[in-house]
Structure formats: structure tokens, C-alpha cells
């Protein structure tokens, strides 16, 4: 029995990665859930919105780097974020003007708007791949120092056999996500505009009667979604890497997170993000190492103690999604 080493191994291989990934999913799911709450449709273009924001951030990162501007130990992409968010916001507002506004005025069945978002997805997917510095290949744009804490340093410090490494990008993810969420909730709970968004989401007709301008609410929503999607995309890309197809595939865990939490509920989106991330990592992690510290070797046999191979990550989000739909379709935090 070596509980300390087991714990460190658990933290290093399960908790830290899952927590970072959970933050990224939560930010993505927040975007989906806000679109759903205010505009009342599920946006299939959200993965590509994240990709667009990330490509923009990569572009600005290159510009900054070319001018010799970096962010010290932190990734330069963080400095590029505001510009990238601005581009994404303009793009989303433009999309709304060209596509979604028409359906909103006509008050069509939300599923039609969802299908329109598939068209938007196609277009954005194409644009992302056509952007000169984007393309279809993997891009790694994280710079600055790689680790906040290296495994070797941790071992030396504690004298344990297991090391605990914390990547700079993971730390950046957690801090940025926490700031974003705090800012978002402050905005929704305390400001007049934020409250009007909630009111519009709650009861559109009554919001109109109260003199809330729907177009303004929608615009503010798109701007917030742009910020969330860009930040989520950039954090994911820093932590792993950017690739349009991977971002497109993030759609499923993000949707699952939003549904698990309850579509339309911001708090739920965050909880859902962590539920999905931790399940994915825990179900596909080979527990042999952690178990090796806790139990005698001859108990364990020679299996990896891995419930599912990592290729089945997608199955995990999906299984949780199905379970929630079966047991509690409104999600953990009562969505719509």
C-alpha cells in the first residue's frame, strides 16, 4: 500500500488532464447552452466557430511573434485573444445578420434553424481550411515555458516515486476558464443587460412587453458566444493542438455536456463539461499504475486495467448522453 504515490499518479494522469479538459468543454458547452437559451436552437456550427476563433488567434500570435512580442513564460496566444474574439464576434454577428435573423423574424420551428446551422457549419469549415495559415493539418502554437511544474522537480521536492507535472497550458486553461465563468455569471446576475438576456431566455413574449429589445439581446449573446468559443478553442489548441477536423468532432462531447447539464442552463453546462471530461478520462485511463501502488502485484494480473481503449472516448460522452436522456431529459440543472 502506497497511498501517496497512488494519489500523485492519479492526480498526474487523471485529475489534472481531466480538469483542464473539463474547463475547455465547459466553456464550449456554455456557448452552446447560451445560444440555445436565447436563440432556441442547437448550433451545429459551434465546433467550427471554436476553430475559427482559434485560427484567428493563431494568426495574431504569428503577427505578434514576428514583431518580437511574446508573453514571457505564458503562451503568446493569450495576448492574441482579444483580437481573435473581435474577429469571431464580427463573424458571428455577420452570420446572424445573413442567416439566423431571417428565421428569427419568421419564428420558424427551431429545427429549421438547426439545419441552417449545418449550412453555416459547412461554410465555416470551408473557410477555416482555406485560411492561408490554417489548412487541414495539425498546428501547434503553444509557446512560452512548457511546464509550470515538472515531474522531476516534483519528485525531487517530495521524494516520491511518482511525479506530478503541470503543463503551463493546463494551468492557463484553469485560470482563464475560472475568470471567464466568474465574469459571465457576474454579467448575467448583476448587470441590466445580463438580466435582460436571462429574461429574454425565460419568457420571450414578456420580455418584449417589458421593452427589452430582442435584437440587442441577440447581439450581446453572439458577442459572448464569440468570446467563449474563441477562448475554449484557443485553450484546447494550446493544451493539445489545432486541427479543424478535431474541433468539428468536439461537437459531440460539447453537446453531451450541455445536455447533461440541462440545455439552456449555464451552471449545468459547466457541471456537464466536468462530468463528460472526467468520465472520458477515467474510463479510458489504464489504472494499472495507480492500482499497482494500492494492491499486491499478483492480484492484478497482466491487464492494463483499462475499461475502454482511448479510441472509445466518443462512446463515453455518448453513453452518458443516452443515460441522461433516459433518466432525466432536462439534465442535472433543469434546462428547457
Amino acid at each position: 500500500m502506497d497511498i501517496l504515490n497512488a494519489l500523485v499518479a492519479f492526480l498526474n494522469f487523471v485529475f489534472v488532464p481531466a480538469f483542464g479538459y473539463g474547463c475547455q468543454l465547459a466553456l464550449g458547452a456554455l456557448g452552446v447552452t447560451l445560444i440555445f437559451a436565447v436563440l432556441r436552437f442547437s448550433s451545429f456550427a459551434h465546433g467550427d466557430t471554436m476553430a475559427f476563433g482559434t485560427v484567428m488567434a493563431i494568426g495574431f500570435t504569428y503577427v505578434l511573434q514576428a514583431n518580437g512580442i511574446t508573453f514571457g513564460p505564458l503562451p503568446t496566444a493569450l495576448l492574441a485573444l482579444p483580437f481573435a474574439i473581435l474577429c469571431t464576434a464580427l463573424m458571428l454577428l455577420g452570420t446572424d445578420r445573413l442567416v439566423y435573423r431571417f428565421y428569427r423574424k419568421k419564428r420558424v420551428d427551431p429545427i429549421i434553424v438547426t439545419i441552417a446551422s449545418v449550412g453555416v457549419m459547412f461554410v465555416m469549415n470551408g473557410i477555416n481550411r482555406l485560411i492561408p495559415w490554417g489548412g487541414v493539418e495539425e498546428i501547434n502554437f503553444a509557446d512560452g515555458s512548457r511546464f509550470l511544474m515538472e515531474a522531476a522537480a516534483f519528485k525531487e521536492m517530495t521524494g516520491l516515486k511518482e511525479g506530478l507535472a503541470i503543463k503551463t497550458t493546463t494551468a492557463v486553461t484553469v485560470v482563464t476558464a475560472a475568470l471567464c465563468v466568474a465574469a459571465l455569471f457576474w454579467f448575467l446576475q448583476k448587470t441590466r443587460t445580463g438580466k435582460s438576456m436571462r429574461a429574454f431566455s425565460d419568457n420571450e413574449d414578456l420580455a418584449l412587453l417589458s421593452g427589452i429589445n430582442p435584437e440587442r439581446v441577440v447581439q450581446v449573446t453572439w458577442i459572448i458566444v464569440a468570446a467563449l468559443a474563441t477562448i475554449a478553442g484557443v485553450l484546447y489548441g494550446l493544451d493539445k493542438s489545432y486541427r479543424p477536423f478535431v474541433y468539428f468532432q468536439l461537437l459531440l462531447p460539447i453537446f453531451s455536456a450541455a445536455v447533461v447539464g440541462g440545455l439552456g442552463s449555464p451552471l449545468g453546462a459547466i457541471a456537464g463539461g466536468f462530468v463528460i471530461a472526467f468520465s472520458e478520462v477515467m474510463v479510458t485511463y489504464a489504472w494499472k499504475k495507480v492500482a499497482g501502488y494500492l494492491f499486491p502485484a499478483d492480484w492484478l494480473g497482466d491487464g492494463l486495467l483499462q475499461l475502454l481503449s482511448t479510441d472509445y472516448k466518443v462512446a463515453v460522452s455518448f453513453a452518458i448522453l443516452l443515460l441522461v436522456l433516459l433518466v432525466k431529459p432536462t439534465g442535472l440543472f433543469k434546462g428547457k
Binding site: 438580466k195 436571462r198 429574461a199 431566455s201 425565460d202 419568457n203 414578456l206 420580455a207 412587453l209
Partner: peptide, 10 residues
């Protein structure tokens, strides 16, 4: 209005 005349979540 007769129905849905409050913001229930607020």
C-alpha cells in the same frame, strides 16, 4: 397577460 406573465427563473 393571462399566462406566462412572470419570469419564472428570476
Amino acid at each position: 397577460p393571462q399566462t406566462s406573465n412572470i419570469f419564472t427563473s428570476m
